Amino acid sequence: MIYLNSFRFPSETMEINFTTDIRRTCYDSFYPFNILSRYEFERIDLAPITILYGGNGSGKTTALNIIAEKTGIKRDSIFNKTNFYNDYLEMCFMEIERDIPENSRIITSDDVFDYMLNIRNLNEGIDLKRDELLDEYMDTKYSKFMLKSLDDYEQLKKVNSARRKTQSRFVRDSLMDNVRELSNGENAFRYFTEKIGEDGFFILDEPENSLSPKRQVELVRFIEDSARFFGCQFLISTHSPFLLAIKNAKIYDLDSNPVEVKKWTELENVRTYYEFFKRFEDEF
């Protein structure tokens, strides 16, 4: 499925014309200007699955954030913005094949990490409340309580409840269970499967973070199926050879100047993996 057909970033000439007028000011950063143009990255034509590949500082995340802001899709985590961000967005142009669905979103590493931390903090809060209820049970059950007025009625019900129930039953009836505890990788994978629904445009910024190789392979299968059968379009930044090998993905190499579309087997990162395992082939 194609929702976003193409996207154009400002050319180097457009950026120079804009920044020349403001260079005499006190600003020392014009981000996101002068990031993508230095690699002559001016246009991206999207497939059902499009991947941006490149080393740190190549502009992958910048490009994803710009496209996410211009398309207006949902996002959770904040990101780096400057005074010139809106000026840059006004210079960008996009061609829409179909209306971008409302459930479309960008998913970043920060989103996944926050999700895992929230689960951990929730369980820690439940554990703390459990300890408090255990103490409350003992104090309530063996207290010398006497009903003096209707104001004491709620406390009377609590005392009677504690005296009728075992300690464990008292706590279970008063407290929700812990959220099922999974590994970080399992929680990260679950986050993607919960947030990526049918018929949507999804931007994933280095989704391999926190995922083991096995989980990355599962995510690849999930992405391929979502694009093929469930009306989804993906724009992904990654270093992972597992994600780079996604079937029929269109890959832009941001390490080349100018930026080029390449096969995954031509990428430097993948070649490094290949040469490493080839050197130790006899040990497998």
Results as ranks from 00 to 15, higher is better:
Thr20Gln: 13
Thr108Phe: 07
Arg105Val: 02
Val112Cys: 00
Arg43Asp: 14
Glu260Arg: 10
Phe145Trp: 00
Ser29His: 06
Lys129His: 04
Val261Tyr: 02
Ser6Asn: 15
Tyr31Ala: 06
Tyr153Cys: 02
Tyr115Gln: 05
Phe201Arg: 07
Phe189Thr: 01
Thr238Phe: 10
Lys70Met: 10
Glu154Tyr: 11
Asn83Pro: 02
Thr193Glu: 03
Asp45Asn: 15
Leu4Thr: 08
Glu281Val: 13
Arg105Pro: 00
Tyr88Val: 11
Arg8Thr: 11
Tyr274Asp: 14
Glu97His: 12
Phe189His: 02
Arg271Ser: 02
Met146Asp: 13
Asp282Arg: 12
Asn118Gln: 08
Ser226Val: 03
Leu64Gln: 12
Lys262Glu: 06
Ile96Met: 06
Asp177Cys: 05
Phe79Ala: 00
Arg215Ile: 06
Thr140Asp: 00
Asp99Glu: 13
Glu95Phe: 02
Lys165Glu: 14
Arg8Gln: 15
Pro48Val: 07
Ile251Thr: 09
Glu95Arg: 12
Ser11Cys: 03
Asn123Gln: 04
Ile35Tyr: 11
Asn118Glu: 11
Ser37Lys: 04
Arg228Ser: 14
Glu69Gln: 12
Leu211Trp: 04
Met116Ala: 00
Ser174Ile: 00
Gly54Val: 05
Glu224Met: 01
Tyr88Gln: 12
Glu136Ile: 00
Thr238Ala: 08
Ser210Asn: 15
Lys81Asn: 04
Arg215Tyr: 08
Phe84Ala: 06
Gly185Asn: 04
Glu198Ile: 03
Thr272Leu: 12
Ala68Ile: 02
Leu134Trp: 12
Val270Gln: 09
Arg271Thr: 05
Asn56Leu: 01
Phe30Val: 11
Ile126Met: 03
Phe280Val: 07
Ser212Leu: 05
Ile203Gln: 05
Glu186Pro: 01
Arg98Lys: 15
Asn83Met: 12
Ile2Gln: 12
Glu275Gln: 14
Thr193Tyr: 00
Phe277Pro: 08
Asn5Glu: 15
Leu235Asn: 10
Asn86Val: 13
Phe277Cys: 07
Asp28Tyr: 07
Asp114Ile: 05
Thr50Lys: 03
Lys158Cys: 01
Leu182Phe: 13
Arg221Ala: 06
Ser29Pro: 04
Ala245Lys: 15
Thr140Met: 11
Asn34Asp: 15
Met116Arg: 02
Asp76Arg: 09
